[in-house]
Write a protein that binds this DNA or RNA. Sequence first.
DNA 1: GTCTTGTTTCGACATATGTCTATCTTGACT
DNA 2: AGTCAAGATAGACATATGTCGAAACAAGAC
Lengths: 119, 119
Amino acid sequence: MSKQDVSISRSGGCCTPISVAALDEATASEGAAVFKALSDPIRLRLMSIIASAGAEVCVCDITPHFTVSGPTISHHLRVLREAGLVDCERRGTWVYYWPLPDRQQWISTLLSVPEPASA
Amino acid sequence: MSKQDVSISRSGGCCTPISVAALDEATASEGAAVFKALSDPIRLRLMSIIASAGAEVCVCDITPHFTVSGPTISHHLRVLREAGLVDCERRGTWVYYWPLPDRQQWISTLLSVPEPASA
DNA sequence: GTCTTGTTTCGACATATGTCTATCTTGACT
DNA sequence: AGTCAAGATAGACATATGTCGAAACAAGAC
């Protein structure tokens, strides 16, 4: 697979990148909502911690990485959840979070820049 | 005009997706700033119009697509400019905007999901 | 020069957002 | 039952943001 094929294959699946066609209002609103969820440094770090974990992450393992209060972390996790980027489940005393890659992949594809055809 | 007051720490080697490694605070702040620029429906549509044009776009051709006032469009374009996503130039009476694909590609890669979304 | 058009900047406003403390819910363990 | 700990929720607060109208600015037409 060539490097050019990567961006093309990523764009081929679920949606048309903005570099190819302008967004209609509804799609723009939906996409903007996802971007808004990632528009805070703490939330973006939270997302990266959950996405990179390769497994469920306990909130108790997340909180120590930050200086803000527990409720603030909880609030940010809820925003990520409501954006469809993560989901969670309580098991016993602890709550575990995991990523929902579909949404993440969607906006990634939306932003992908097709390789300029050099020919 | 073309002022770009955002320092871009990367560029050459691009970056590691969040699905692979968690972000440090500095990169998270930088990334969140770009996402914030795209977190408004009007700005996301503006970005898509400029990115998909394949050429410079005159502001006079952009404004009619929206119902908000001219100053509001100008404000949103400035946010995109300060995020390093677009640049512009005045030529005669009109101002033309074009995309800066580096920033766009950067956050696209940041969000890319290496593994298949649903295995 | 003055006028007209296109675009940005300014100043103000209502609403949204991030953060905190205090309180509540859930479940584990005596 | 009672108690404790992990998280979530509620309410309050200061700040940030999106929007507008008015004014300023830039460049061409007259």
